[in-house]
Simulated scan of single mutants.
Amino acid sequence: MSNEAKYKRVILKLSGEALAGDVGFGIDPKIILSISEQIKEIADLNVEVAVVVGAGNIWRGKTGSEMGMDRATADYMGMLATVMNALALQDSLESLGVGTRVQSSIEMRQVAEPYIRRRAIRHLEKKRVVIFAAGTGNPYFSTDTTAALRAAEIEAEVILMAKNNVDGVYSADPKVDEAAVKYDRISYLDVLNEGLAVMDSTASSLCMDNDIPLVVFSITEIGNIKRVVLGEEIGTVVRGK
């Protein structure tokens, strides 16, 4: 296989759970370092890398809402948790010599730059990894939607959705249904019509409307991020209508 990247600019979407490892909660330094090493691998291929990280390892706004908390307050707490994950990832990347910037949708100048689209693009052009934190800055929107929105804004060629519990898109939950079939390719329209839990419907619609392809793959196998960037067919490709 060629060592030439298929994509020039990508958004890597990491779930918060991916940072927690087997413990399922908090931040596992070994996991963060492993992910950082994989990001460095693709940055070394001159790929411009932006990262959107979730917060499920620390806090979920939806869970807070279900406990009776005001939904907007619960979601803002989730956004702040993504900043903690972003700073941990930044620290790990910079320990490997990778220039990194965290941009937050909620202004907190002491720890991160405010999100400014043109500045983010300039960082990417200078081969810095940009980590988008604090979601969209608005409650009721997921970090999946953040990834779709930022991908459209910075004109990323693809969203790489790294999962820690599944290796692609299935017709049903493979842990529950033994007859579940894995798709190699599927359209956003089919994802929406079949109610497949790939991204929430807002994120899927945004990707579909802006023709942004999505690759869903497992991050538990080390080296998979590079394999996807080099064009190896792993996981599931979601695109078009």
Rank of each mutant, 00 (worst) to 15 (best):
V52I: 07
A55Q: 11
G56W: 01
N57M: 05
I58Y: 07
I58H: 08
W59A: 15
R60V: 09
R60E: 08
R60P: 08
G61K: 03
K62C: 10
K62V: 14
K62T: 11
S65T: 13
E66C: 08
E66P: 02
M67I: 06
G68Y: 07
G68L: 08
M69F: 07
R71I: 05
A72S: 14
T73Y: 12
D75M: 02
D75R: 00
Y76A: 01
Y76F: 10
Y76T: 08
L80Y: 15
L80P: 06
A81R: 00
V83S: 10
V83W: 07
M84S: 11
M84G: 02
N85I: 00
A88C: 11
A88G: 10
L89R: 07
Q90P: 06
D91K: 15
D91I: 12
S92P: 09
S92L: 11
S92D: 06
L93Q: 01
L93C: 04
L96I: 06
L96G: 14
R101K: 11
S104N: 00
S104F: 05
S104C: 01
S105M: 12
I106F: 04
M108E: 13
R109K: 10
V111D: 04
P114E: 05
P114L: 08
Y115M: 02
R117P: 01
R118W: 12
R119G: 13
A120V: 09
A120C: 08
R122Q: 12
R122I: 10
H123V: 11
R128M: 13
R128W: 12
V129R: 00
V130D: 00
I131M: 02
A133D: 03
A134K: 04
G135C: 02
G135V: 07
N138C: 01
P139H: 02
Y140T: 15
F141L: 14
S142W: 07
T143K: 03
T145M: 10
T145S: 09
T145W: 01
T146K: 09
A147L: 07
R150S: 05
R150W: 00
A151H: 01
A151S: 14
A152L: 11
A152E: 08
E153P: 09
A156D: 06
A156I: 05
V158G: 04
V158T: 09
I159G: 06
M161F: 15
